[in-house]
Write a protein that binds this DNA or RNA. Sequence first.
RNA 1: GGGUGGAUAGCUCAGCGGUAGAGCGCCGCCCUUACAAGGCGGAUGUCCAGGGUUCAAUCCCCUGUCCACCCA
Length: 940
Amino acid sequence: MSDTHDDEILPKQYAPSAVEKRWYEFWEDNGFFVASGDESDPRPTYTIAIPPPNVTGTLHMGHACRTTFEDVLTRYHRMRGYDALWIPGTDHAGIATQVVVERLLAREGKTRHELGREKFVERVWEWKKTSGDRIYEQQRKMGSSCDWTRAKFTMDPDLSHAVREAFVRLYEEGLIYRGTRLVNWDVVTQTVLSDLEVETKEGVDGELFEFAYPVVDANGASKGEVVVATTRPETMLGDTALAVHPDDERYTHLHGCFGKHPFVDRLVPIITDAVLVDPKFGTGVVKVTPAHDPNDFATGKRHGLPEINIFHLDGRLNAEGGPFEGLDRFVARKQVKAKLDELGLARGSKKHVMTLPVSQRSGAVVEPMISTQWFVKMEPLAIPAIDAVESGKIQILPEDWSKTYFHWLRNIQDWCISRQLWWGHPIPAFYCGSCEHVNVTREDPTACSQCGSTDLKADPDVLDTWFSSALWPFSTLGWPNDTPDLRRYYPTQDMETGYDILFFWVARMIMMGMHFMGEVPFNRVLLAGLVTDERGEKMSKVKGNVIDPLDVIHGAKLDDLIAKAEFNGSKPQGLDYIKKTYPSGFAEYGTDALRMTLLSYSPQSRRIALSLKRVEGYRNFANKLWNAARYALPKVGAAVATGEAPPAKALANRWILSRLAHALDVANEGLAAYRLDEASGALYHFVWDELCDWYLELSKPLLESDDAAAVDETRAVLVHVIETTLRALHPMMPFVTEEIWHRVSKSDGLGAHPRDASKPRSLIVARFPTAEVDGRRDEAAERELAILQAFVGSARSIRAEHDLPWARPIAIHYLAETAAADVLAREARLIGSLTNASLHVAAASKLDDPHAHFANAAIFANPGVKAVVPDVIDPQKERERLERELKKLGKDLDVLVKKLGNASFVDRAPADVVEKARQDRGDLEAQKAQLEGALARLGA
RNA sequence: GGGUGGAUAGCUCAGCGGUAGAGCGCCGCCCUUACAAGGCGGAUGUCCAGGGUUCAAUCCCCUGUCCACCCA
């Protein structure tokens, strides 16, 4: 990959695909992504642990967004001389993966139970092997400069070892315990879920069904009936009490009586409970089902009620269901209602909009069930985690999220970590068959530590996926062993992820990091928004609005998009949306364009409504950069980029170095403040609006000049500015910049490997530019070029408004005695080149009354300039134009006049503000006079 | 029920106590020898509503409306 491209003619359009593949292999093969791991390496370290994607997953736009952000930070630090380590990896994603493999089995007509546990787990490992690396390949396509030599999988032996060690330690410390609680049961996947894995589905149409319980007193004498209301009639089979409010006088006479259960032989006591019962809601009588409702469970504990579980684990009714045994809970619901109706106990129903708890994974309505599970005691872990953020040891960005973080941690519930799954880390608990002792051990025990019995049964459950994730920042570095990597790279610096897993993951990593390492796992949490479609709707396969990052990179025909959406189970509306929004599919936009697009959204916003038009804009930008190089390369001759701003005398050269300094300042500030949108925006505008629109144009006359020194200077500046721009853009657009850079950069000092001279040069390790070294501020040059720009702008405006084609040269006569005239005289060649005009100095006497001296002249309206273009206007049109201008100007002027006429403004506003207002008023008045003069002289 | 965020040009979004910005779209002209994935010029806004603070509010405070999300 040396300088063999020199003689090639660059194509007019940048074609990303070949370039991307080539450079990625180059970087990876030459070890540019590998962190040193060397304790004697004097460079400071910069580390990010990747949020590990699901091992069986495919890259989606959220990953692309994460990946881009993290890669920019990694590359930026690497270029600034850090030993940068970005640790990649994948998550076994217990429940999600198990569901995927079960679905595959279902296609073969098998279930995991038929296969048996051992075979099933083998099968998952196989699946992991075949699909597991796909996500790595996709991340490579995104340009991720991860250290692949350190890639980790949460079920690798070393990470599993870390999980077991963490579990045992927490158990020994009393922070993990086994308890019987009301838990969230997913009847489809048949496992318990943590509170976080339960989502609430709002606005579900349900009904509030009312029925009567016959009431008897302690002697069995009838006391009439009470009516209860419920959204879940089938749970009445597990009722163990009826509750009324103690102060509710309607029911005082029933205190101490019993409800007679209509279906099972059971009397349920009527209890009084002020916590559970709201006397204003419904009938004021509440049926109490302690085994299947959290509030009822608590009520049951208060009153010592029996807890009757009425369900099998798959949601069918068990023997407690009496006549309804064996029915699915929803079938039972209907039949219970019908049966109550038959018995004459139904009392009607009302429509009721309700919220339902559903499983995040299976979508099944979650059933509260009483069960014995493993829990982590969270409060002692939460306290240091709160402190870490409060004290500023960890900074959460955007800061608003700290509030959410604190609120969750301060109201934290214990974490249920056991799962009734087969895929995951086994819980290292062994139950003794003879003394019932629970052995929790680092190595599988052969005998009970209590009684010595060898009758031990391993806990069949596995751990919640997030348990291993919580250890990620240190388990990936070798913990619990004291490894060089752990010493060198922990704590990591930045943790970048989506806000949707702030609780699931971020908070738990902080808790575990504080607990096991005694130190924060990272110094900063960067929370990015959710990538949505361009309407702002969440991408989902069912909606059919999922945009695959690889389609954006490589391009996709409409038919392919449709086919993919159909395959993924999109609804017809989804297909229509695609057809309407992307009628011609996606062009091949390239990775750099996608990256720039994702970076351009503000990190403050919670939604990133990805617009393909925007991607196209950045694709065009990559092409712009390409063509800037295409222009510059043949022009710079032997000039070499030295990595230092070359000396400059010519205005244009001084100016571009000054603007470069400005852009580099904004870019560095943006990167330091994690405002990658601002950093990338500054560079985008620098390249397009200043470098390409002005400097490259200005360089043309300079390079054609007879002044050899000026030509050399311009060549040096040109090559330096382009090379520097490439360095600045590299973290964001690594491919196109590297491709161009190898054609532009010839200096040995640039891009040399910091630790291994035998490696080829690469932009990936070139020094990230700064305003001080690579640019040069020059206010005078900026001021003067602004005059030139305004002058050129006016000339172009006159051309456009008076329909003067570019090919027709014009003459501009200007007054030499104005403030701007020096610049105009000095830069007449440049101006002429940009406007296809010849410049002439005119006497004051003529320009004071231009229409008397220049026939059909267009007048410049710039402040501080007097100039005309003769022989170009239609007087009538010109009159209209001047009037239009005057009107606009008058409005602005009015505001200022009014403001300055306000005594309290003049007195109380800061002096510089008042001064500026005065100056603006002066300018506007002068301009107005000029326009009015022109109008008057034009004649009526 | 509690909480958080948002409402700015036709669309997607920046911004911010001192006379409103970008990209895309729109209108006009131009294949000017790096780029038509381009160049030049141009039009476009009760900055959600109502109050308050201030010399000055799109920005700060309060109230309301609508949208999104989180927690119970």
